[in-house]
Amino acid sequence: MAVVILLCGTCGLSKCITRYLISMVASDLLVIITAVLLNRIPAIYFPGSFLSITPICCISISLIYATRDISVWLTVSFTFDRFVAICCQKLKMKYCTEKMAAVVIGIVCGLGCLKNIPWYFMHEPILIINNVPWYCRLKEIRYTSPIWATFQWTDRILTPCLPFFLILFLNAVTVRHVLIASRARRRLRAQTKGNNQNDTEMENRRKSIVLLFSISGSFVLLWTTYVVQFFFERFINEYKPQGLSDPKFIFQESANMLQLLSCCTNTFIYAVTQRRFRQQLYHMLQHPLTLVRNYCHN
């Protein structure tokens, strides 16, 4: 529904912002499809299906990491775009355009796919039945090979450690710029119109600050457990879980759950908070009821 509403272009957003929002919603949806619908649910409720064949399983895992990275870095790209729009007025006219947004989205998607190809080769089959390999598990070499260790460290640094820093830094600079501009505007209005006048521009800036803190706070909180779990795994020799009730297993799965949940929040943070989007969503949900009511009336 979010994609349909944004494609209609009735939310009062610029084409540049709309492109970013659509790409973010689409990438988040792909994360849910690849990581939940095609991986978690079949593994738990439909074991032994064709999705458990090792080559398909390896492709699925690579797609999960690719869509995850694309989702995270599109969030960073959009945050940078808003930083430029607010803080860099000279660069704004050249960078904050629909064409540049399309180029950035294409680069992020392409690099996200290329970066995660090695995940396909990091897994091996658990069983071989009638010459058909089944299921996937990480190769033991990942704990001893410096090449795989370097790849894993690079993977965690690029997602989500570097996005952590970039989002927090860009939001901090943006908020500082907004606060300085707001104070200057408040002094100017006090000299010209008095303090009792409502300032729509300052109210919009205040909402932007709240939105920026919501974005960074949500991202950091939901990814922190995943980062801690990675460092814990790398520095503890006996990290392999011994069963479903093992605290290590519960911690690991909780980290995976929270990082998947982070891919569900962007739509709400960026889109649902928009008043016009909420109106269009209400009309979309109301439309089937209106059709039924008109049919019954006729």
Rank of each mutant, 00 (worst) to 15 (best):
Y120A: 10
F230W: 13
L158D: 02
F232Y: 14
Y282H: 12
H287Q: 11
I70C: 07
A149P: 01
F169H: 09
V76D: 05
F235T: 14
C8F: 08
C263E: 00
N116P: 04
R183F: 02
P160T: 02
M122P: 05
F169K: 09
S208M: 09
F80E: 03
K94R: 13
E253V: 10
C113T: 13
G12R: 04
P125A: 10
Y270F: 15
Y143P: 00
C57A: 15
Y295D: 07
E233D: 08
C11W: 01
I157G: 10
M1W: 02
I59V: 12
L261T: 12
P160W: 00
A35H: 07
V3G: 03
L63A: 11
I167M: 15
L285V: 03
N256V: 02
T10C: 14
L6T: 01
V4K: 13
A172Q: 06
T159E: 14
T174C: 10
I147S: 00
T273P: 01
T75E: 08
R293L: 12
T144K: 07
L74R: 05
A190R: 05
T75A: 10
S262H: 12
Q274A: 03
C161S: 10
C87H: 06
I215D: 00
Q197D: 11
A26Y: 05
F46S: 12
L162S: 02
N294M: 08
P125L: 10
I157V: 06
H287F: 09
L291D: 06
L222H: 01
C16E: 12
C109E: 04
I33M: 13
L63H: 01
L111Q: 11
I64C: 13
A102Q: 09
M93T: 11
G217Q: 01
H283A: 12
I180N: 08
C88F: 08
E253M: 13
G9W: 07
F165C: 14
V3M: 10
A35T: 09
V84G: 04
S62K: 00
R293Y: 11
E124Q: 14
L222V: 06
P146N: 09
I56R: 08
F251I: 03
A26M: 14
R183L: 08
T79I: 12
A35S: 15
L74I: 08
H177A: 13
H123Y: 07
A172E: 08
L170K: 02
N39R: 06
Q191S: 13
V108W: 03
Q229R: 02
K92M: 11
C263F: 02
Q274S: 13
R293P: 02
Q274Y: 02
M93N: 08
